[in-house]
């Protein structure tokens, strides 16, 4: 499925969060949305997946979701959003329960995603018993179980420590390389964006405008190899120059109610 963001603007009361965003998400790519904190990245992601209504503009889709897809636009949340009173298996089962699938298919889907995310042996654990990395694996498993056409990931690794982030990023990439699901990946971390994304869209500070969309041009599987390092380092510099001044100003802004965390 392809997605077209057309002239989207969004306001929270008097505060403009996004201004005239035009963006395309292509089938099978990872598009990273990057920008300073409070620039409206998460707002844009909410609008793309239809859980936030933009003040103006619209989001268009072309193509059909794959057969068996129960929830074409599926989120992975920064704070995991797991139900603490359900086990790993219960959390993964949640989005299937109201679909009336045959018991055998339900079980098969759950077993499959638990195996793919390495959670099989933790399936009876409660979220509080798991490390942050494991919790986000549950979040990813829950997203995959509905066979999404597009994964909308809202800073999925931001709540994790550096080592866990690295490990999870590798695992996620391995998963992605097998399936090539379309992903919109919001982050404020340039290294994450350059490790995962096919293209990087840079948003300015509030009100978020699209500054640039940069194609990485190196296959994800080859990015850790020495040959790619020059290109990635140059790209890192280029992007950092775009972001740095914005980030400096954004850091000195007073955060107003209704913006942070939305």
């Amino acid at each position: 499925m392809e997605l077209l963001v057309e002239g989207v603007s969004h306001r929270y009361g008097d505060i403009a969060a996004l201004e005239n965003i035009n963006l395309m998400v292509r089938e099978g790519e990872i598009l990273a949305l990057i920008g300073p904190s409070g620039c409206g990245k998460s707002t844009l992601l909410g609008i793309v997946g239809g859980i936030l209504k933009p003040t103006s503009g619209r989001v268009l889709v072309s193509g059909e979701p794959p057969t068996g897809s129960l929830n074409p636009f599926t989120y992975v949340f920064q704070d995991f959003a797991l139900l603490p009173w359900r086990t790993v298996e219960g959390n993964v089962a949640l989005p299937l329960e109201h679909h009336g699938l045959p018991e055998s298919e339900r079980r098969a889907r759950i077993a499959d995603v638990l195996a793919r995310t390495g959670l099989t042996e933790f399936r009876n654990a409660f979220p509080k018993q798991l490390s942050g990395g494991m919790r986000q694996r549950v979040g990813i498993a829950r997203a995959l179980v509905v066979r999404p056409a597009m994964l909308l990931m809202d800073e999925p690794l931001s709540a994790l420590d550096a080592q866990t982030r690295e490990l999870l990023m590798e695992d996620f990439l391995a998963l992605w390389l097998k399936e090539r699901i379309t992903v919109v990946y919001v982050t404020h971390n340039l290294d994450e964006a350059l490790r995962l994304a096919d293209r990087v869209a840079i948003l300015s500070r509030r009100p978020g405008r699209l500054r640039d969309v940069v194609t990485v041009g190196v296959a994800q599987a080859e990015r850790t190899q020495p040959a790619a390092q020059m290109r990635l380092a140059a790209l890192h510099d280029q992007l950092w120059r775009l972001i740095k001044a914005e980030a400096q100003v954004a850091e000195r802004e007073v955060i107003e109610d209704g913006i942070a965390g939305t």
Binding site: G49, T74, Y75, D79, A81, L94, P95, H98
Partner: peptide, 13 residues
């Protein structure tokens, strides 16, 4: 509220 948003994002009735 994030749990309720999560439920909505999966189209739970």
């Amino acid at each position: 509220r994030n749990l309720i948003r999560m439920g909505q994002s999966f189209d739970l009735p």
